[in-house]
């Protein structure tokens, strides 16, 4: 078996890669659905209906896609410069902690200042948390994958301590949760019914902004250059370490904003189950989007539809909800192969 670089990658083939990956994922996971003794097409139809079939389902899918867009963007930016930030989960909680610290009564500003302020402190907290691994990488060459992963566990324990200890809401009847965000800090609802909130606008704006930065600014060019070939970038005069630090700050900041949006937009307060692994799913979102900021939006919507749809599917037929996580995991592996096939061809020798 031999792998050969293609002379050029046609745009059509490149665009087809995510679609092929999604299709392959659905086909591979149909084996599990068959095992559960459910007709495959019926199961996927139920999943689709659960995600898009009613206005309630649609709203849920969009609501669930907000944190995935933001963590997906966080991962996409970092991976672009080959900085493997797998710590979006921890940075999300850092952002959530910051929003709770400032948003539960410490200060109270008019809503049009308070909401941006909370988003800002959340972004700063997320960026600050990622500063530890990034400095360890640039100064000491400590692998960032392991440090960012380990910090996720540290952050979860920190949240657990704070909501059981000093930050516990005394009015919560003993439940481990913080006090609620003040009214002026709450992200306004977008529709009169349902849980969809202004976080969606924040996430979409973030996607456009990140795209613009990557496309039109020097920093964006440098990020891509470092990702392509750090040595060549260094030779051409780019300060690689500085670029990686900036990348990390943007990446951590985006994940931090995801935490603020979940607390101030959806839950209202912080609990330990704020994120069912949004940070890790962000890796899948970014990969499916081929690390392109604008493609993160449909990729996040797709994966959130899988989660929302799988919930309602497993209520209708006897398939464990973990099928959604399996689909996400398989999609990461499938997109890797599909993208490779756009750039390389495999030739089997006789």
């Amino acid at each position: 078996m031999q792998i050969e670089l293609r002379d050029h990658t046609s745009l059509l083939r490149a665009g087809m890669a995510p679609i092929a990956a999604v299709f392959a994922t659905l086909v591979i996971c149909s084996a599990l659905i068959l095992w559960a003794d459910v007709p495959v097409l019926e199961a996927y139809a139920l999943l689709f209906k659960g995600a898009f079939g009613s206005s309630f389902a649609l709203k849920e899918t969009f609501t669930r896609s907000i944190p995935l867009m933001l963590t997906g963007l966080a991962v996409a930016v970092a991976f672009r410069s080959k900085f493997y930030n797998i710590g979006a989960e921890g940075q999300l909680y850092a952002g959530a902690l910051a929003s709770v610290y400032f948003g539960t009564g410490l200060i109270d500003l008019p809503v049009f200042i308070m909401v941006p302020f909370l988003l800002l402190v959340g972004a700063l907290a997320g960026g600050a948390l990622l500063l530890v691994p990034v400095l360890l990488k640039t100064k000491l060459k400590v692998d960032e994958v392991v440090t960012t992963l380990l910090l996720n566990f540290v952050m979860l324990l920190m949240v657990s301590y704070l909501i059981e200890g000093p930050w516990r809401d005394p009015m919560a009847m003993g439940w481990p949760q913080t006090a609620s965000i003040v009214d002026n800090g709450v992200l306004p609802a977008l529709l009169t019914k349902g849980r969809l909130h202004a976080g969606l606008i924040v996430a979409l704006l973030a996607a456009v902004l990140v795209w613009a930065v990557m496309r039109f600014t020097v920093l964006g060019y440098e990020i891509k250059a470092v990702g392509f070939n750090a040595k060549a970038a260094e030779f051409s005069g780019i300060n690689v370490n500085k670029t990686v630090v900036y990348t990390a700050l943007i990446s951590g900041g985006l994940a931090g904003i995801a935490g603020v949006s979940e607390v101030a937009g959806l839950k209202g307060y912080l609990t330990l189950d704020l994120s069912p692994g949004f940070g890790y799913t962000g890796v899948a979102v970014a990969m499916l989007a081929r690390l392109h900021p604008l493609s993160v939006v449909p990729a996040a919507l797709f994966l959130s539809s899988i989660y929302v749809g799988a919930d309602s599917m497993s209520r209708a037929v006897n398939i464990p909800t973990y099928i959604a996580d399996v689909l996400v995991g398989v999609s990461v592996l499938a997109i890797l192969v599909c993208v490779m096939l756009t750039q390389y061809k495999i030739r089997f020798r006789q």
């Binding site: 899948a284 099928i323 592996l333 890797l336």
Partner: peptide
């Protein structure tokens, strides 16, 4: 990519175990 493959396998393997 060894990084992305590894994370993908972790996501896939653990969710498959739970499933």
């Amino acid at each position: 990519s060894q990084h992305v493959t590894g994370i993908g396998i972790t996501l896939f393997a653990s969710s498959l175990s739970y499933f």
